[in-house]
Amino acid sequence: MKSVIKMKKIKLVLVGMFAVLTTVRAQDVLDVSGINLLLFGGDQKSISLTVDIQPLAIVDFEPEGQLISGSGETTVEAGMPATTLGGGLPDNLWLNFTHRAINYQPARIYVSANMPLPDNIIVRAEIIETGIGGDFTANPRVGHVDLSQSEQIIVYDFGNGYTGDGLGNGYRINYTVLNPNNEPFPTGYQSIYRIGN
């Protein structure tokens, strides 16, 4: 009876050792801090590697290609005019950006218009919500901006980050048009967003 039990123990030990060895073999990761290179006939060498990473600043609106005026469909890729106002106002526009600084220099987002408006028309833009996607430090302007041809800050200094792409990411922009006399809107009016220093 005793010999049977001993045999079972030996088998268990063998199975255990085999399992450990198999596990070690299946593992592709090595603890190099404690390895004995001499014992394994091994060696170790290191070499320098250089990586050059570009700065990056890109901004656009979502949804893309939205029909928001009677004049046609706009393209809202980064660097392009963001919206064309006239026939109707979008109510769910989100400003997305990705930014990697040059020499740690913080960036801002500016907004301006491509042409003057008649005296009685005012276009206002305001950040009314910040999305939770991506990885960035939010620093929106509080309150609205009356658009003019001069650039004005709508997002203050921020460092490297990205908002996530699409609706619900970045900053939600609300537009208000004050046009008490219901004057005709200038054809080709655009608001322009720029990310930079």
């Binding site: 050059d52 990473i53 600084a101 490297n160 980050g161 990205y162």
Partner: peptide, 9 residues
């Protein structure tokens, strides 16, 4: 995007 731009060695 969170990485620092420039050359890293």
């Amino acid at each position: 995007s969170l990485a620092i731009s420039g050359t890293g060695n």
